[in-house]
């Protein structure tokens, strides 16, 4: 069996990179004493994967770990033992046992919901009114760094939803293995639409609040419930 654990990456640990988060989870699993499955081979490691890597600097409210168990355990026991074994800043909110044949989370992942907090309220006042005009554009070109250099992409088809309130932006953005839209692309697009100079620094806190997958009827639902 596999266990899907929904966990938080809080503000305090937001600068920890994905590899270090993975290691922290692996050590947490080791501390928990839960019967986790190890890989074979010379250097055995715990079989755990993550639905999506969260960038360094971003927080996550409902990130998902996918742990292969060597023996069945109940969801309650998994949740209790993991929360005793994980640091305060990476606690789990739920766990769900699934069959080994359950599709890989990474393959089912479709989108992420993000909360973006513009730290400077004056900048927020300039950026938020640009949401409407930007979304009304036929295409929303932004620069994206790729392996072969910087290229322009149209991010309009990658945005499911975008709205603003006070200092916050709420965005539902495409997040698949093939294509994804990053929160800083939204910021860049808004800066352009608002006529803000490219070099003007905007401090922004990114919180990914939910990962989404596609339900049978084509609608987006929380990935962990799929």
């Amino acid at each position: 069996m596999r266990m899907l654990g929904v966990f938080e990456k809080s503000e305090r640990v937001r600068h920890i990179g994905h590899l270090d988060i993975q290691r922290a989870v692996q050590r947490g699993l080791r501390r928990s004493g839960l019967p986790v499955a190890y890989s074979n081979g010379f250097n055995p490691h715990i079989q755990v994967t993550f639905a999506s890597a969260l960038s360094t600097g971003a927080c996550g409210k409902r990130e998902i770990m996918d742990v292969k168990m060597a023996e069945p355990v109940s969801e309650e026991v998994f949740l209790r033992k993991m929360n005793a074994a994980m640091p305060q800043d990476m606690q789990l909110s739920s766990a769900r046992a699934v069959d080994d044949r359950h599709p890989a989370l990474m393959a089912s992942l479709k989108a992420g919901i993000y909360e973006m907090v513009i730290r400077d309220p004056r900048q927020a006042d300039r950026l938020l009114p640009a949401i409407g005009p930007m979304m009304a554009q036929e295409t929303i070109p932004v620069a994206r760094k790729t392996k072969s250099g910087i290229k322009e992409v149209d991010m309009k088809p990658l945005i499911y939803a975008l709205r603003g309130e006070g200092q916050k932006l709420y965005a539902t953005l495409m997040l698949t293995e093939r294509e994804s839209c990053k929160p800083n692309m939204i910021l860049e697009g808004l800066k352009r639409a608002a006529g803000m100079p490219e070099e003007e620094e905007v401090r922004m806190l990114v919180i990914r609040t939910q990962l989404l997958g596609e339900a049978g009827d084509g609608g987006l639902v929380p990935l962990e419930t799929l």
Binding site: V13, H15, I16, G28, R31, M86, P87, Q88, D89
Partner: peptide, 10 residues
Amino acid sequence: KAPRYTGGEM
């Protein structure tokens, strides 16, 4: 290396 300054480790 911001984690040098943020603490909160297990």
